[in-house]
């Protein structure tokens, strides 16, 4: 088996200290391979979002290591992690997190522009990504002129623009109806089928079922896994 795109090894995350100490993650290990979509399920507060922020380098683990594309996030430093988010990792949020002051195309082109790409080439790439999510013709609209589903598609276009190897989606369907949610998942799944690795955090079984593997997280621990390839044993449970 080749090297996974994302690997979390024994990752713990503690917020606060003393009496206010909260263990968001207690030694989680998981891997996501190219072409694979992994769903993470669990009730609210189970730590599934923490897992995603750490995987995306937005937060750092208290202990344990994270590698993306073979690169250790801890060693990459703040700017290295930022660079990784610009080039390798695409993030999709529940509430879209589009920048209202930028047009759809500019939002999509954002990571490329931040990476120093020329305005024209960034824009061309953005148009292609918008086309991929079925929003050609909406390039110059502002987010608040669009519906929730359209906005989430822009967010997905932003997450897939360029050659992203890893897509992290945090409840991307949370604010959408079932039909629209299915469309969004179809887009993410298509990207994984095209060779990216995907991690999807959700609490809805119907969307989790799009994944190749479904991992259950509870109280900061991976408690269970259901999937097609259990033989690979990609999940290690760690006793606290």
């Amino acid at each position: 088996m080749s090297e996974p795109v994302l690997r979390l090894t024994d990752v713990s995350r503690v917020h606060g200290t003393g009496a206010a100490e909260v263990h968001a993650l207690r030694g989680v290990s998981l891997a996501a391979y190219a072409g694979e979509l992994v769903a993470i399920m669990g009730p609210s507060g189970s730590g599934k979002s923490s897992l995603l922020t750490i995987a995306g380098g937005l937060d750092s683990p208290t202990s344990g290591s994270v590698t993306v594309d073979g690169q250790d996030l801890g060693a990459a430093g703040v700017s290295g992690r930022a660079r990784l988010r610009r080039t390798s990792v695409g993030y999709v949020f529940q509430d879209f997190n589009l920048i209202p002051a930028l047009t759809a195309a500019e939002n999509v082109a954002l990571p490329l522009e931040l990476d120093g790409a020329g305005r024209r080439s960034a824009r061309d790439a953005a148009r292609k990504a918008l086309e991929e999510v079925g929003l050609d013709g909406f390039a110059d609209r502002f987010p608040d002129e669009m519906s929730g589903g359209q906005r989430q598609r822009i967010a997905i276009a932003r997450a897939i623009v360029g050659e992203r190897r890893l897509i992290l989606a945090d409840e991307p369907t949370g604010a959408l109806d079932t039909e629209t949610g299915e469309d969004i998942l179809k887009l993410i799944r298509a990207r994984c089928d095209a060779g990216a690795a995907g991690v999807l955090v959700t609490h809805e079984p119907r969307y989790a079922s799009w994944a190749d593997r479904v991992i259950y997280v509870r109280d900061g621990l991976v408690v269970d896994e259901a999937g097609e390839t259990p033989g690979l044993s990609l999940v290690d449970e760690v006793e606290a």
């Binding site: 079984p205 119907r206 079922s209 269970d224 259901a226 999937g227 097609e228």
Partner: peptide, 20 residues
């Protein structure tokens, strides 16, 4: 419960594969 859920999830994934 877990065993059942895994089984059901696999069934669900099966249906999903069928639909895809």
């Amino acid at each position: 419960v877990q065993q059942q859920r895994n089984a059901t999830m696999q069934a669900l994934q099966g249906y999903r594969r069928q639909s895809r």
